Simulated scan of single mutants.
Amino acid sequence: MNNYAVFLRGINVGGINIKMADLKAALKSRPFSGVQTLLASGNVVLASELDPAGVKKEFEACLRETFGYDAWVVVLTADRVAALVEACPYPADDGATHSYVTLSSDEAVLAELFEAGVALDGTDLTRLGPDALAWLAPVGGTLESPFSKLSSKAKYKAATTTRNLRTMVKVRDAATKL
């Protein structure tokens, strides 16, 4: 049995509203155990005998069939989430900046986003591996930051999802305790 974190893209924004209790109930019919939802923003931890690709396939099918939501999710092992949190060079709590981790299961899209991001003036960006990059935004200015505007473009939105580093720490802690 492996412990996983599943990060949903675009849930509870833009008209796609799913109650976490309903999501948890729907996932009970799938080959998952220990399902927990975190922070009502599309973060789920669970255990499964499936590999990451199998978890992704089952999870996305569940969302489509139950909620009519053409979902896109990133599935990481609990160990990978822990490694990303550890590798992030930015602080989880800082008075002047927020630290973010952008996740993707499409390495080519993430590489393209990273290259476009490093070309932006004043963007502090670090590649954490084939599935993640970390970046900073000023407190109160995340949505207006150049990298946030870049990463929200349609060509990246469908293949990436971003979490605050504090959220990643909470997901790591929950996933490792399953």
Rank of each mutant, 00 (worst) to 15 (best):
R127Y: 02
T126S: 14
G129A: 14
L8H: 08
N3L: 04
F147I: 00
V74A: 13
K177H: 11
A61P: 00
A71I: 00
A92L: 13
D94M: 06
K155C: 11
V118C: 13
R166L: 06
N164S: 11
L39A: 05
S104A: 12
G141N: 10
W72S: 08
S148F: 13
C88I: 02
S29A: 13
L143H: 13
T102F: 00
E60A: 04
F114C: 05
P91T: 13
W72T: 07
V109G: 09
A134D: 07
K57V: 15
T126M: 12
L136E: 12
K153Q: 14
L63H: 03
L76G: 01
G54I: 10
L76H: 05
A108C: 02
R9L: 01
V169F: 11
A47Y: 00
V55S: 03
L50G: 01
P89W: 15
F67R: 02
E112W: 06
L113N: 03
G15D: 10
G129Y: 09
D121C: 02
K157N: 10
L23E: 12
D79F: 10
Y156F: 15
D22Y: 10
T97L: 03
L133N: 06
L46Y: 02
N3P: 04
M20E: 03
I11H: 08
L23N: 09
G140F: 04
G34P: 02
G141M: 01
D106I: 10
V35G: 10
D173S: 07
A71D: 04
S148H: 15
S41H: 02
L150C: 07
P31A: 05
V169L: 12
A159P: 01
P130Y: 04
T167D: 03
G14W: 10
L136V: 05
T77S: 15
A78S: 12
A26C: 05
Y156R: 09
D131G: 13
L84Q: 04
A158C: 10
G42L: 11
A111T: 06
P89S: 14
S152F: 07
L120Q: 14
R127N: 05
A137W: 04
K155D: 15
A78C: 10
R64E: 06
L23Q: 08
L50V: 09
S145D: 09
G54L: 11
K153Y: 07
L113A: 09
Q36W: 03
F114H: 13
A40P: 00
D93R: 15
C88T: 06
A92K: 13
L125Q: 01
K57S: 14
K24F: 01
S29R: 05
G68C: 07
W72E: 08
E65T: 14
D79S: 15
P52A: 11
L150N: 09
N3G: 13
